[in-house]
Each structure stands twice: as C-alpha cells, then as structure tokens.
Amino acid sequence: MFVPMNEAKKYQFKPYEECPCESGQKYKFCCYAKSRNSKVDFRDYSATRITAEGRRLLKDTEFKMCFAFDTSECSKDLIGAHSIQNNGVLDKISVENHVYALSSEIDQNTMYPQLEFTPIGKNQASIFSGFCKKHDEDYFKCIEDKDYEGTLEQNYWFGFRALCFELHRKLRLKKSFANFFKKYPGATRTPSIYTEYYNTKLSIRDSWTEYERFKSAYAKKSFNNLESIVKVVPFTVGFTATTSVGVGMDMEGNLAADIYNYNDKHFIPNLYVSVIPKENMTLIIISRFHEDNCYKNILSQLNGNENDEKLFRYISFCLAEYSENVYFSPAVIDSLSEANKRKIKTAFMGVLSPTPELRLRNLYATTSLNLFDLKL
C-alpha cells in the first residue's frame, strides 16, 4: 500500500504547543522565533557531512531504561539487551562474529539517501538499552534458555521483546528530532520534517498502548490474548528479523491496519513478526492481539496458505516495507550478484524514498522480493 507524498496529511506546529526542541517553551516563542534568523542550506553540505551529522544526532540520543512491568524490582545493572538471540540465531548467520545490517548513507551524486550492507559485530547487532539484567533474564529465559516449543508464553515474549525494541528506537528518534530542531530551528517549518515528527509521536503513543496490553496480559497470565501462526520452513535462511509493526495490507492486497490515517484519535495496532534461522530449519512466528480485527484476515490467510512462495514474498514485503531490525549473513550476501544486492537495498528503502517516482520504483522491488531465497 502506498500513499503519494502529496496526499499524506501535512502537519504544522501550532503557535502555543510545546516546542518540539523540548526546551519547555511554546513553539511561537522558541524555534519559530529563532527560525526567522536561521538560514541553513543543506545543498551546501557534502553527502559525507550529512550522513555523519545524522548518525551523530542519533548516537547522542542513546539512553538506558528498563521496560519491566514493575521497575521497583529492577537491578541496578541496566544492560544492552538483544532483541534477537545472540547465541543460536545471530551465531547461525554470522561470519567471523559479524553480520550485515542495512545502513543509510547519502549518495554524493544525487544527494538522495541510499542503503548499504554494513558489517556489525554480532554482539552489537539488535542491541538496545531497554532492560536491567534481572528482568532481561527473568522475562526472556523461556525463549533464550529453552528450545522453541510453540507455547503461548514463548510467542508472547517474542512479541513483547520486539515491541520494546521498536519503542526504544522510536523514543530515540523523537529525541533526535528535538536535537535537530535545536540546531536548525528553521527545519520546524519544513513540511516533510514536521510530518515525520508528528508521525513518530503518534507511533510512540500507539506503542505505549500496546505495552499496556502486554502488561495486562502478563498480570493475568493471559498469554492467549495473542493469536499466533507458526510456520516451520525445512531449510536455514541467511537472515533473521524480529519486529513490531503496523501493517497496511493483507496477503491479497486488501486494507489491514489503516496506517495512513493520521487522525490523532486513531489507534494503529502492531503485528509481531519473527524469522528465526535454526539448524536445518527456520521458524516464522506471526502474532496479533485477538481484538485487532484489522489483522484477522492476515492470520486467517497465513493459516490457510499452501503456497510457500506467496507466504515468503508477503513476509519479505512486511520486513522490507516496515522494519529495520533485519540482519543478514555475510556469506550469503557476498555470494550475490551486484544486481541482486541492489534489489534488496532498493526494496528496503521504503519511506526513505525522496520522491514519489522513486517510492513507486522501490515499492515494486519490495513486492517482488523473496528473502527466503537467501539460504545458508
């Protein structure tokens, strides 16, 4: 599903709302006033400088917290938790303790964003500072220390960890916007930037709603509040992913979650997707909360699907279009032709596409992608 840029709702900061730079002042008397004397032309910046600036802004937002339901029991040791299992999953696809991630850079010729396969140590891949040591061990021991048995509780914890990873990332993204506005107050007047800022705020709000649903299910031990479909694939894929995302269409191209409805009162629930390579097999786990009727067709279609190619393309579409938490085996990626590498990078461009024309081209690559062709 694609909404052209000129049809997406455009937001505008209101004079008396809190300034998005998080100064505590009203917008009219803060970044709006400063923007009158702020004239920064990013066309004068080199691609290397823009890329480095973006990475620095994001790096400066790193923070530690614990997403435990009862933080009064937290240990003092806040750690970098893995959203994807290090031993047994990242191990499976790594080469010399490294995996590939897709990172964004600015092309020097076009000055457009592009994606590149970048090596990252498996101990750093999928890390986020979202739990103390005690709760990371207590919560996830049934998926870290036990073989997967398809229990309701195991599916619950896969979904919850994915949610916390994405929520932590969105909170950092919002903070990076604030830092950006502090440095470049004139950016608050740029429609595409303040639209992305508001969309991030709405997404954070929806994620906290999801968090409360997980918390309620945990308190009641109602792990069956989530419906899951599990598919066992009889080969090992050369990538892994776990994500919590709003999905806009089902396997037949029909509307699922109304992800382009930016009404402040509209709640967009998440679908939880994990692809877990193991020895001679791969697990696919897809979950939703039962009350999320927008995903009912997806779970029904997945349950009744007998066409693996269609299933693989749909999951590949969901990951490429909506997720960033995907890691690849260097052995598999390095064996591909440059054309096939480019197809994957193009498919994952998604909302980074700078023009409607490129967005359509990239969307075509996304719908024709089959990541399950990447076999170990």
Rank of each mutant, 00 (worst) to 15 (best):
S316C: 12
V233H: 02
L371G: 04
L336C: 07
N325G: 10
G246W: 02
L167V: 00
D138Q: 15
Y16W: 12
D292A: 12
M65D: 12
V99N: 11
L369G: 03
T366K: 05
M111L: 09
N325I: 08
D136Y: 08
C294A: 00
S335V: 08
Q301I: 03
S203M: 11
E210A: 07
K296V: 09
E17I: 04
C30H: 05
S244M: 06
Y295T: 02
I333Q: 06
E321D: 15
E22F: 03
S353C: 05
K345E: 14
P269S: 02
C142V: 13
A125C: 01
K375G: 06
R189M: 14
I268T: 00
A365T: 10
Q12K: 15
S323C: 01
C21I: 03
G246D: 01
N86Q: 13
S353Y: 08
F312V: 09
T200A: 01
P113L: 06
A339E: 11
N224S: 14
F67H: 01
P191A: 03
N86H: 11
A256T: 04
E144G: 01
S287V: 00
C21S: 09
V247F: 14
A219F: 08
T355D: 10
F181V: 00
F180N: 02
A47F: 00
H266G: 01
N280K: 13
T51C: 04
F117C: 03
I79N: 01
T195R: 15
E73M: 11
N254C: 00
E105V: 13
T200F: 02
H82G: 01
L363M: 10
M251I: 03
N155V: 04
L167F: 02
K231W: 05
G186Y: 07
I93N: 00
S35A: 06
P234I: 05
A47N: 07
D145A: 12
S176K: 04
P354C: 00
D107S: 10
M349F: 03
F140M: 02
Y156F: 11
D145P: 06
P277T: 10
R55S: 15
